[in-house]
Computed example of a mutant assay.
Amino acid sequence: MKLGLQLGYWAAQPPANAQELVTEADRSGFDAVFSAESWGNDAFTPLAWWGSSTERIRLGTSVAQLSARTPTAAAMHALTLDHLSGGRAILGLGVSGPQVVEGWYGEPFEKPLARTREYVSIIRKVLAREAPVTNDGPHHPLPYSGPGALGLGKPLKPITHPLRADLPIWLGAEGPKNVALTAEIADGWLAIYYTPRLADMYNEWLDEGFARPGARRSREDFEIAATCQVVVTDDRAGEIARMKPITALYVGGMGAAEMNFHAQVYTRMGYGDVVTEIQRLFLSGRKEEAMSIVPDEMVTDTMIIGNGDEVRQQLKVWEDAGVTMLLVHARDVEQMRQLASVVNPA
């Protein structure tokens, strides 16, 4: 089992000890470090800044939002980071949600699957650098010839030769159609709120994608990186209680009541009734009450919490389910060393 350090996106200020964590991740055997974006910091700059002091760890976005930049701009970011890091970049992409896409980026959210397919296809063309990049699709036409165009657009190849034409592209996906698309066109799946209990269901979605004509990967060379808080503790109950506000926030507040992808994930897990109640309370401003009704199982289904032996037993369950990397948060260097020693003991 590989470990990835998930730095996430910033709150009001940059995290104070991020450089220390990234340096320790590189030193203690973590496979990758990931940075995210929401509507504050971007996902690429932290990797270039903090990653410049590392030697071996991979540097990934988890995720860069599709609507934040055109596909050619995303390819420019990725090829730049790949050169600067000596071939260690992972381009993790995701569609985000309609509140962010339409409210922050001013773009339509409709047809996210078609937009993703087109976006990834253009990036592949940029990285391959085999011909000037063109695209006939409706979402990102190249050259642009729509309203306001001067008709002078010219197909171009990147001036800078990409270091790797096969720079890995991973997709953040939650629903069945998006996961199947990920298996078809991507090199890895960034899974949020994954639970081994539903591994058979996820594998059906993935197998649908792998079986499609022209699928890029097979199960044997496809990576599944699951966000999973791993906490080694003798106070399991106390740690579960501390995690409940995070679960309530994402289920109840990260999306509209009629379209919250995180809530849909937990509904598929069998928590539909409690999800509805959490959303009702959270969106009416009763956040403390929403947090209080989160059952323990909603936390432990998607996280690993316990003493060293319990954590090692659960790691085997996740690995047997097909997960190849756990994306973990860490508050300090000592916790990172503890995680590394438990997950991959010498």
Score class of each variant (00 low, 15 high):
Ile192Glu: 10
Pro196Val: 13
Glu220Gln: 14
Tyr194Gln: 05
Asp221Ile: 01
Glu239Val: 14
Glu223Ile: 03
Ala215Gln: 09
Ile240His: 03
Gly188Pro: 11
Asn203Leu: 13
Val230Pro: 06
Asp207Val: 02
Phe210Asn: 04
Ala199Glu: 07
Glu208Thr: 15
Arg216Cys: 02
Arg242Ile: 00
Ala211Arg: 14
Pro213Leu: 10
Asp234Arg: 14
Asp207Met: 08
Val231Thr: 15
Ala225Gly: 04
Cys228Phe: 11
Pro196Gln: 12
Cys228Thr: 15
Glu239Cys: 02
Gly214Pro: 10
Tyr202Trp: 14
Ala241Met: 08
Glu208Ile: 12
Trp189His: 13
Thr195Glu: 06
Asp207Asn: 15
Ile224Ala: 02
Asn203Tyr: 02
Thr233Arg: 06
Asp200Ser: 15
Thr233Tyr: 05
Ala191Leu: 10
Asp235Cys: 03
Glu239Ser: 11
Ala226Trp: 12
Gly238Leu: 10
Ala225Tyr: 05
Leu206His: 03
Tyr202His: 14
Gly238His: 12
Pro196Asp: 12
Ala241Thr: 10
Met201Gly: 00
Ile192Met: 09
Trp189Ser: 03
Ser218Glu: 08
Glu239Ala: 13
Ile240Glu: 05
Ala211His: 07
Phe222Gln: 01
Asp235Trp: 06
Gly238Trp: 10
Ala186Val: 07
Cys228Leu: 07
Glu220Tyr: 00
Ala199Asp: 09
Arg236Ser: 05
Tyr194Met: 08
Cys228Met: 08
Glu204Met: 00
